[in-house]
Design a protein around this nucleic acid. Sequence first.
DNA 1: CTGAAAGCGCTTACAG
DNA 2: CTGAAAGCGCTTACAG
Lengths: 341, 341
Amino acid sequence: MEEAETDARPVRRKAPPTIYDVAKLTGFSASTVSRALNKPGRINAKTEERIRDAAASIGYQLNPMARALPTGRTDTMAVLISDITNPVYLQLLRGAEHVATSSELTLVFAESQEDPALELSTARRLLPSVDGMLLFGSRLTDDQILDLAEIKPVVLANREVEGVPAIVPEVTVGIRQAVDHLQSLGHRSIGYVSGPATSWMNRRRWEVVFESAVARGLTVVEIPIGDATMAGGEAALPRVLASGVTAVLTYNDLVALGLLRTARAARIDVPGGLSIVGFDNVFGADLTTPTLTSIGTPSTEVGEAAMRRLLGELDREAEAAAGLLETSLVVRESTGPPGAA
Amino acid sequence: MEEAETDARPVRRKAPPTIYDVAKLTGFSASTVSRALNKPGRINAKTEERIRDAAASIGYQLNPMARALPTGRTDTMAVLISDITNPVYLQLLRGAEHVATSSELTLVFAESQEDPALELSTARRLLPSVDGMLLFGSRLTDDQILDLAEIKPVVLANREVEGVPAIVPEVTVGIRQAVDHLQSLGHRSIGYVSGPATSWMNRRRWEVVFESAVARGLTVVEIPIGDATMAGGEAALPRVLASGVTAVLTYNDLVALGLLRTARAARIDVPGGLSIVGFDNVFGADLTTPTLTSIGTPSTEVGEAAMRRLLGELDREAEAAAGLLETSLVVRESTGPPGAA
DNA sequence: CTGAAAGCGCTTACAG
DNA sequence: CTGAAAGCGCTTACAG
């Protein structure tokens, strides 16, 4: 590791200029400076221009925290995600970040590492300094979320709580397509390798898998695993094999990728010996051999929609969300007829 | 997309309690409440306890912005990354986030989408409300960075500027290993598929590749591409082939992965017809066929070290950084003897 | 159109 | 150990 030298001379950081500095410089009052800078057109145009120029000349920069105190408006949003390791949350973050940036909003970000207690304390700590909060894949209880939503506007993604705005991609279509796909390939018995018990989205996906399978007369079992990671997927193989199913859907692509990898290492043919359907269609799904069939989720769009919704709650540019957020099956090579090995 | 109903009753958000509320409740002054809550042990133990209890009972929560005004201390750090799409920056972010969270620090996050102008304006906007700033893969000029560093402490990652603290993984060892590896396989002519011209890290990597190759008597060429993405890597194939090299190192794994994919699609044997060495060893590198040989970079550790360094600059728990941050070659299947197809 | 004044929620010398 | 007071950098009725 190289480290550039730190400054020899201790950096003299002069206090940044305030509106009083530009007031002094221009001869106007602080009130007028404030208006010139923030209420364009409400004061004499000449005055405004002179003040703006002066402000620019001394590098005046508004102090957002000082403004927030009297107004209560921070122009800052918080986003909390439960697991930064999961590419899906990264996509959500990315979507949220894009609309925040384009709205000149500051974005405060934290991860709770799947720990509900940490999530709650972080949310409480952050709430006073933001206008609103996005909870992505929250592991909190419904009541805890409702409590937070009493303090400041909260919008959920990939989670539903009665009474709190939420953006959740519709999972039904994609899952039905996947189940139809498997059935048409000849599978009669399928499994769902499930994710964290605390994950609302996991429950939701399992419910729909269950209903879809039952509605089509297929046998279906849930195969719970530890972590929704590649390692979790790898660890699931014995149970998947023992279950006797010929195809599985998984909670997410990480699990599917892990499963795919160990299956191949164990010389089990995919899809001949086992068909695998992932979920979310993340980066890497089309890199494997065989490539991974996956139910695609518009995660970036969900993140964007969530941030827009939050802005709407705050009566800012309520720019309507981008229509339906649907999942849909992306068929690749990891699914095929059973016993085709 | 489903959206949970918004509250029927318009949520009455009561103003959050202040220290004056707990002062009133306990009969002590606001000054004493402030001390009880923030300077443990400096006032009567009984008093302190009573005040803490009262504060907890009404759900008092410190307003960080109100505190920041008189103290100038925000307990908030900003991290700016140039491209959220690049997994490496995500790793850096993740490392920084982890130490921030464990230090009870708030983390403000923004992406500049490879746009220097946006990076500069975002940095300026954020600086007043944070204690310090991390610039990851900054695309600013040295002078711009120096200007920012005059305002608040700045720490760089994957970029060096004289006079500004920086955390940069040592790239030499990994690159030398890679060049040795290629030479020992029999390659005599290698290429470097380079990344963004604005990227300091790209220049640095090229320099070391160049020196290493020359020192070993190998022929070496730089092959510049547009974007450092998979698509960029795909687009680079014709130029790589035209250059006549038998092996390439790439600026990063995304480029390598793109190149690998099109090469195979074009029925070029990897490594027989072309050996490929990626950089950073990101998620997905061991998922491909063939798996990708890559120079591993400890990105999460770099992010952590950068945040620790920033804390050090601010005289907070200067917990020494975790020793040397080295790169090292991870040999997989995408490299082999030339002409072995 | 412009200014003086009060107040946002804290902290911290300064007294007592 | 505790309190009264001033001040952090803004905004915004209220006057003029």
